[in-house]
Every structure is written in C-alpha cells, then in structure tokens.
Design a protein around this nucleic acid. Structure first.
Lengths: 224, 224
DNA sequence: TAGGAACTTCAGAATTACTTCAGAATTGCT
DNA sequence: AGCAATTCTGAAGTAATTCTGAAGTTCCTA
C-alpha cells in the first residue's frame, strides 16, 4: 500500500511517515509543488495526503492535476486553515476526505484506511465470496467459519488477488507487491513462488483451492 | 507483440527493454532520428514508445512522419519535460498516450497494454464473436462457456489473428510473431505449422473450427 | 502426376513452476 | 531491552508444461 505525503513541514511529514510505516504503509514524500506533480505523474498511490498550504503552488491545483490526469488515487486533504470554503472546494474537486490540522495520527490512519477500503471494496468492511470471508479491519480470513491465520504477506497477496479478480497478474507485479519495494526489476521470483505456495496450501486445507489459478508462462489470477 | 523503443539514453532503453521482454513483448530500439524513421517505415509495431528529447531531430516530427505514412501503430510519448504544451500537441498529432519521466515500469506496461487493447478491442476488454469469447485481462478464451486453456504462444497467435481478421498473414510474419525474433528469413516453418495445428485442434475440439483458414501457398487468415 | 506446401506425430530440449528447508529478519511479549 | 516465536527470504533440487525441430505423410495445384 503506497502513500504519498505532500507536506512541506519536514518534521510533520517525518512524524506521519514514521507512524504510517508502523502501520505497514509504504510512504513517499513530496515537499514542493514540482516534486508532487512529478511523483503523481509517475506512480500510482493507494492514497495521497495533500497539504493545501504548500509553497510554490496552490495545493488545490495539485488536486486538479490529479483529476485531470485521470488518476484514481484516493486523496485526503490536510489543511491548517479549517475553512469551510476550502473543504467544500476540495471535496467538489474530487478529494475523498478532509482532515484539519492539528490531528491525531490514529485519526489519520483511520481516514486512510477508510479511503482505501472505499476504493477497493466499496463501502463494506467485509468481502465475502461464497464460503470465503475477508474481514478487513480485523485482518482475518475465514472459510466456512474456520480461521485461516494467514501471515501478513499472505493476507496482502490474497487481498490483491481478490480485488483484481479475473485479471492475470504477472509475477513481476506480485514480486513488487510482496516485497513492498519500488524496484524496477526482479531477477528472483522465489519469494513469489513460496508465498503463493503457502497461501494455496492454507486455502486448500480449508477447502477453498479452486480460485487461485496458475497461468503457465503468464502469471496468476483469482478466477471466479 | 512488437514494440519500438525510440530513446537515446542507452541505459534507460535497456532497462525498459528488459522489463518489457519480461512481460513478453518483443522490443526493438532506435537511438537516433534516422534509425527511428527507418524502423518505422519498414516494420509494423503494436506500440511505439517515443522519447521527445531525441538528438538529430525533433521528436514530434517523428510522430508527424508516423501519421503521414498512415501507420496504425499505437504511440506513447515519453518526455522529461512535463510540459502541458508538449502533451497537448502530442495528443493532437495523434499520440495515444503520454508519460512523463521519470516513470515506473509497471505504469509503462499498463499504458502499453491499454493502448494495444484500445487498438485491438476498441474500448472493451472482451471480444465476443458468436460462441467465441476472448477476455484480454483474464487472458482466457472460452467457447460456449467452456475454457480453452491455450498456451501462451497459442493465445498470442489467436489474438494476432483476431486483431487482423480477414487479412492474410504470411508464415514469415507468424514465425516472427511466434519465435519472438525478427529475422528476415526463416528456413523452417515447422514451428508455425505445429502451433497452428495445436490451436486449430483446440478450437475445433471446442466446436469452433470455421474461422482459421489456410490459403495454400500464401498464408493464413481469420475469416469472419 | 510430380513436386512443393501443409499437416501430423512425437521425443528431447528448454523453460517455467513447485517444493523443501535452513538461516536471516522481523515481530511480539515480558 | 532482550528473548522467544513467527515469518520472510533465497538457494537448491525436483516436477511439470510447453516449445522446437526432425521425419514421415498427406494434400494441393500447376
């Protein structure tokens, strides 16, 4: 889960980054308008935290650029000026949420979680698919009521598959997702093989092995 | 799927080429204006990646040349200068997409996929033709709901035929497509024969043998 | 009907995926 | 902070699938 923090106050950005890293998000930073535009154009983020008070350009124009580029990233506006006008304009421009400074970090994390959840799962916290049930806030997966006790990577892998059902996902994409790194190339897919194997094993032990398919020479997909 | 990378920075070109080869594209390179024009005139590519900052000629004039020649290749403009003017002019001249440097390789792959999809399938991801149904993101082919489970080469062959329906395709072109090499001459068409045979067999077993025709001494075509 | 073109079969080569396991790294607990 | 438990990573070996090309057969057309 990649998050872009657009914030010029270095201390605050660091604090946010540290806290969110703790929550296992992968954070990147942009301190200026130009940096922000560059990052936004080049990468996809699950969520963008946008401070409106940015030097070198109005924050809202960054939001306009995001939408103009047709990006689907979630956006949370953060602002010291708790002005109703800004809030309304931001939300009208397509921001997903608004948070006024000062805020508590758990509050921020909750908002991020909810934005990502809405983007991925619609409004529900729980993804149910026949006998498979994924409870996102509880980070638990059950099949026919029996708990699967997946590891973190296995859980993330499963979420990735289920939220991209019927789409082939290449090993390269999976490697990037699993490793949590923004690496350009992977020469080693053993990690992918191993985690896929473990996930498949747990799923099949619970009697749910029919969905995760291997496409020889191509990738994997969650077929429904 | 052939891709032409027009890029003078050798390292970047190599990196892109390596990644896209991993995704099973067949890459060629042009580092200068003259090379680019020559390649474009002689071959057809599914997608051309065009760096605007090329020595020896304005990048946009390459785009003009592509369009002047009536080529149907998809074009993605790549540029370090994230200037809105360039973007607009490029898209006006008929480029299919625009990507600012620096970019992320998966992002590039996604853009290429979407350009090729638009060219081949229109706006849809799914091509349905009577009982035959091709789902591009799922990389699946079904006839009357029954899955065909094609190998990668067979799938690529099928896409190639379907996206060139009613056009005769020479064995040489097919050999090039299958082997992943660009050779001027093939002394051995056994690969083509074998894969065509296998594809035909799978299609006919599913009750779908009427489209892929042999034109004796000329090639093959997907007749609808 | 002759000769080249296309098709079939099939086995070995090449590629890709799976499994196992041990050491490294991380996490959770006191 | 320090220890124990869990999880992750990567190497090595194994298994499965797919690709390739040779050899023989059939088919088409001049």
């Amino acid at each position: 889960m990649k998050i872009l923090i657009i914030e010029d106050e270095v201390e605050l950005a660091k604090t946010m980054g540290a806290y969110l890293s703790d929550e296992h998000y992968l954070c990147e930073f942009a301190g200026t308008y130009a940096e922000a535009i560059e990052k936004i154009s080049s990468y996809d983020y699950e969520c963008i935290l946008l401070d409106l008070m940015l030097p070198g350009g109005d924050g809202l124009s960054i939001l306009r650029e995001i939408k103009y580029q047709g990006k689907l990233d979630g956006v949370i506006i953060i602002s010291a000026k708790n002005s109703l006008d800004d809030k309304i304009e931001g939300l009208q421009l397509g921001a997903d949420d608004y948070l006024a400074k000062p805020f508590h970090l758990p509050e921020l994390a909750a908002r991020i979680f909810s934005v990502i959840r809405r983007k991925t799962f619609g409004s529900s916290n729980i993804l149910q698919h026949n006998e498979l049930r994924i409870d996102l806030p509880a980070k638990s997966v059950t099949v026919k009521g029996k708990d699967l006790s997946l590891t973190r990577k296995e859980f993330e892998l499963l979420i990735y598959f289920v939220s991209n059902k019927n789409k082939v996902i290449s090993k390269t994409a999976l490697a990037e997702h699993i490793s949590g790194e923004i690496a350009d190339m992977f020469d080693n897919y053993d990690i992918v093989y191993t985690h896929i194997k473990n996930l498949k094993k747990k799923l099949s032990e619970a009697g749910c092995d029919l969905y995760l398919k291997t496409l020889y020479g191509t990738g994997y997909k969650w077929q429904v």
